[in-house]
């Protein structure tokens, strides 16, 4: 068994004339949390769509759980699940029906039981039989993530899982993500919030102008920060400082 859940080499993608990815390389270890950071339009969603077989790359390779996304999409789909940037829940069905539907599509045996467990785990039991259209944003996002966990896929992708959530709901999502990783699930998430990456991720990569411009643990990234500045500022550099410093350096070149 190889140790990498996700391997990406030289990934390229353009929309018409707009190059978005220009050679992205990254690796994600099994059972770890990996955060892909980038500002609006950096191409985070594009990376996720390629890795989850929704979009074909123009160049480079990507493999998930040892399966190539371009040539073995069905095997890839069996190993993953996706929580997209925008909640992908059925508004007209109830929370329970949404979960049962996904369990059926994944051809699980005891679909009711699977749904009950997830409803319980995500604190949705009380609203389980209400239509999703009556849910709050946080409840919807929780259901969305719960739907991704149906069938216990070993690798899950979360595209900006906490955007639009209030601080409390955000903490809940963080807790869930940490639990997942503790149970051995590999988590690939994207975020614009630097503190989120700082809190959650084992490794962080920064996507900027089509390339990964930094990749490592939080400690690694902190080393990239110009030390002279640390002397004048009393607190440790936050990831935000590092982010801006790296991008600033790049742009001066």
């Amino acid at each position: 068994m190889q140790n990498e859940a996700i391997q990406v080499k030289g990934l390229q993608k353009s929309y018409k004339n707009l190059p978005v990815l220009e050679g992205v390389d990254l690796e994600v270890e099994k059972g770890s949390i990996f955060a892909l950071l980038g500002s609006n339009g950096a191409g985070k969603t594009t990376v996720i769509k390629i890795l989850t077989t929704l979009l074909k790359q123009d160049g480079g390779t990507a493999s998930i759980n040892g399966f190539d996304v371009a040539t073995k999409p069905d095997s890839v789909r069996k190993s993953i699940s996706l929580t997209g940037q925008f909640a992908a829940v059925d508004e007209i069905l109830s929370g329970r029906e949404n979960l049962i539907m996904i369990a059926q599509l994944r051809h699980l045996k005891d679909t009711r039981q699977v749904a009950n467990e997830l409803l319980d785990r995500f604190g949705l039991t009380d609203v389980a039989d209400r239509r999703v259209s009556t849910y709050s944003g946080g409840m919807r996002r929780r259901l969305d993530i719960a739907m991704s966990l149906v069938g216990k896929p070993p690798i899950i992708f979360l595209d900006e899982p906490t955007t639009g959530l209030d601080p409390e709901a955000r903490l809940e999502v963080w807790k869930t993500v940490k639990q997942l990783a503790n149970n051995g699930t590999t988590v690939f998430l994207t975020t614009q919030y630097l503190d989120e990456a700082e809190q959650l991720a084992d490794r962080i990569a920064i996507l900027h102008e089509g390339k990964i411009i930094a990749n490592g643990t939080l400690a690694d990234l902190k080393k990239l920060f110009p030390p002279t500045k640390v002397e004048y500022v009393e607190k440790q550099p936050t990831l935000e400082d590092i982010f801006l410093a790296i991008i600033g350096k790049k742009e001066k070149k």
């Binding site: 077989t53 789909r77 993953i80 996706l82 997209g84 992908a88 996904i102």
Partner: peptide, 13 residues
């Protein structure tokens, strides 16, 4: 629009 098709397409059906 709602992205539910993307969910359907990312599971093996």
């Amino acid at each position: 629009q709602r992205g539910i098709f993307e969910r359907f397409h990312s599971i093996p059906i």
